[in-house]
């Protein structure tokens, strides 16, 4: 196997794993807690921009960069995204369930707008370049460089995975599921139910921010158009394919969907002439939409399904759906 091929494989997997992180964050919000976030791109962008501003070398005409160590940037990005998630959640979680969806939709639009217009902070449409890359010293050796990067991302994903698994099985996680599964339990918990959901939403948002930071440093360059609503749609497709409620599924779904996406994009590029490519790409998105609807209608538990810890929930869900068929609307 040629070195380039391995390097490309590593590159592909590394990018896929950054999506896996977003997917894990979304899984905590939606899969474990049932909070619908339509603004993933916004939270990812916050993480990316904050980390970029913290770690890039001082730049004329732009806030920062502060040249701080990369770890500080990643942490800062995650914290900033978590803080914004907390505020959005704080605003809407006690209101109607769908106000959170509308508010996250709005946040993503607002973040996008800020990235575009706050040129002294975000670099405006040109974005931020020269973001320090992990293992930059190895940049001369593409194979080693990509292997190291992949190893770093694998480590991050594994750490997150185990942390989340512990969280899911902890009393905290059990309460979350109880709230999601059983409205009476949620009502009985009252105020603290809101607090639990808020915590889950903020942590999930923080994880998305971390993903944004990791992606920014891996690619080395960010611009507003990296964070269009399309990103949100992709991450949703990943979680749905993997199966919401299942952390392993979230990771697998990210790699799988990213693979399908990359292959189909390559196919479109090869088959269609450049004028028609954007058009053909829209069919890709239509497929995500159809997939979301089909899964909701046919297999609400996703392709891999939820893990054993949560399968009880599915049992009750399935039972709940049955008698309704006879019910008049």
């Amino acid at each position: 196997m040629s070195v380039e091929l391995i390097a490309y494989g590593c590159f592909f997997l590394t990018v896929a794993l950054t999506y896996a992180i977003m997917c894990l964050g979304l899984n905590l919000q939606w899969g474990q807690t049932g909070l619908f976030n339509v603004g993933i791109a916004g939270f990812v962008a916050i993480g990316a921009y904050v980390s970029a501003i913290l770690t890039t070398p001082d730049t004329a005409g732009r806030l920062g960069g502060f040249g701080l160590p990369m770890a500080v940037g990643w942490l800062g990005g995650a914290l900033a995204a978590a803080l914004v998630s907390y505020l959005v959640g704080r605003l809407t979680i006690r209101l109607r369930a769908d106000y959170l969806a509308i508010a996250t939709f709005g946040i993503a639009a607002a973040v996008q707008l800020c990235a575009l217009n706050l040129e002294p902070i975000t670099g405006g449409p040109f974005g931020i370049g020269f973001i320090p890359r992990p293992f930059a010293a190895q940049a001369g050796n593409p194979l080693l460089f990509s292997l190291f990067n992949l190893a770093l991302l694998i480590t991050v994903v594994l750490l997150l995975y185990f942390a989340l698994e512990r969280l899911v099985r902890s009393p905290w996680g059990r309460v979350l599921r109880a709230i999601r599964e059983d409205e009476t339990a949620a009502l009985a918990l009252g105020k603290s139910a809101t607090r639990f959901r808020l915590q889950a939403f903020a942590i999930g948002g923080g994880i998305m921010g971390l993903a944004g930071a990791a992606q920014a440093h891996f690619i080395g360059f960010i611009a507003p158009e990296n964070y269009l609503p399309m990103l949100t749609f992709q991450v949703w497709a990943m979680l749905i394919v993997g199966g919401s409620g299942n952390n392993r599924g979230a990771i697998l779904g990210a790699v799988l969907v990213w693979g399908i996406w990359a292959v189909s994009a390559a196919l479109i590029a090869a088959v269609f002439d450049p004028g028609q490519q954007a058009r053909a790409a829209s069919l890709q998105i239509a497929l995500i939409g159809v997939a979301i609807c089909a899964v909701l209608l046919l297999r609400p538990q996703g392709i891999l399904g939820e893990m054993r810890t949560v399968s009880r929930h599915l049992g009750t869900l399935a039972k709940r759906t049955q008698p309704a068929e006879k019910r008049p609307e």
Binding site: G34, L35, F36, V38, R96, A97, D98, A101, F233, W236, R279, A280, S282, L283, Q284, I285, A286, I288, G289, V290, A291, I292, C293, L296, L297, P300, R320, T321, A324, E325, R327, E329
Partner: peptide
């Protein structure tokens, strides 16, 4: 008819929106 929760309906509308919009773009 299945008495799905609000949020499932919202998500379905989101999927329907993606589909319709992309088909129109196509």
């Amino acid at each position: 008819v299945r008495r799905s929760s609000i949020i499932v309906m919202v998500m379905a509308s989101f999927g329907a929106a993606l589909t319709l919009r992309s088909l129109l773009e196509f």
